[in-house]
């Protein structure tokens, strides 16, 4: 298990050695900041509701850019062969890279704490939903990271990995908005699959085990899928 930490360290550092981390974080802050404060004064409410409503859609584009290189790049330059010649298991590799991506997402969310702090100075902010929202954001980020990591194992081309990742994340985000196209018998199941549905529950400040289980299972499925693909390549 110590190998997980070393792989995490290496991957997390390499985000900040290359310009990836800075670009992604800057773009994320710009987009969320713009959309949030554009409507904030119109609503005239001291809440972060609007910020958290937007988060799943923004995440489904931003997170695949973070995860697309994780395995694809290694497959492409061949360093994967060197990595596997060392005493590491597939689980070490998958978990190390997954946590590196989650780490970057946390680093990306930390500057947004400026929003609730700003809002709290100009109005009465209810901190409950804010805490819930941040916990939900980390869970959502982890789930999307697992999906992105999985799509990155599928191909040696980063662009393709990105597109697959966006497609899956975007579908999960929007699926509960498409319900009226679907037969009634499937409604319950499909609604449950929607990431946005569960995330909005948490961001109301209610941390329900059902929503937590949903995100954890998405993580598990994504990581297990990645593990299977790597094993298949072996």
């Amino acid at each position: 298990m110590r190998q997980v930490i070393y792989i995490f360290n290496k991957e997390f550092k390499s985000y900040f050695v290359s310009p990836i981390a800075y670009i992604v974080i800057a773009v994320f802050l710009l987009v969320t900041g713009w959309f949030f404060f554009m409507a904030f004064f119109l609503y005239n409410q001291a809440s972060l509701r609007n910020f958290f409503t937007l988060l799943p859609i923004i995440f489904s584009f931003v997170i695949p850019t973070v995860t697309m290189r994780l395995v694809s790049e290694e497959l492409n330059i061949g360093s994967y062969e060197i990595l596997l010649s060392m005493p590491v298991t597939f689980t070490d590799v998958v978990l190390g890279k997954f946590f590196a991506s989650v780490g970057l997402i946390v680093a990306m969310l930390i500057p947004t704490l400026a929003y609730p702090l700003t809002v709290a100075t100009i109005g009465e902010l209810d901190w409950g939903p804010v805490f819930g929202g941040y916990i939900g954001a980390v869970l959502l980020g982890a789930a999307f990271s697992a999906i992105g990591l999985f799509s990155s194992t599928l191909t040696r081309n980063q662009i393709i990995a990105f597109i697959i990742g966006v497609t899956i994340c975007f579908t999960l985000t929007l699926i509960d908005k498409m319900l009226f196209f679907l037969p009634r018998s499937l409604l319950g199941v499909i609604a449950y699959l929607g990431a946005d549905f569960h995330f909005q529950n948490i961001s109301k400040g209610i941390i329900d085990s059902r929503d937590t289980v949903y995100f954890v299972s998405i993580c598990f499925i994504g990581l297990y899928g990645a593990h299977l693909v790597l094993q298949e390549k072996h």
Partner: peptide, 13 residues
Amino acid sequence: GYLPEEAPLYHDM
């Protein structure tokens, strides 16, 4: 200890 062909190493490290 294994050295693959072309020594594919991490370029940015």
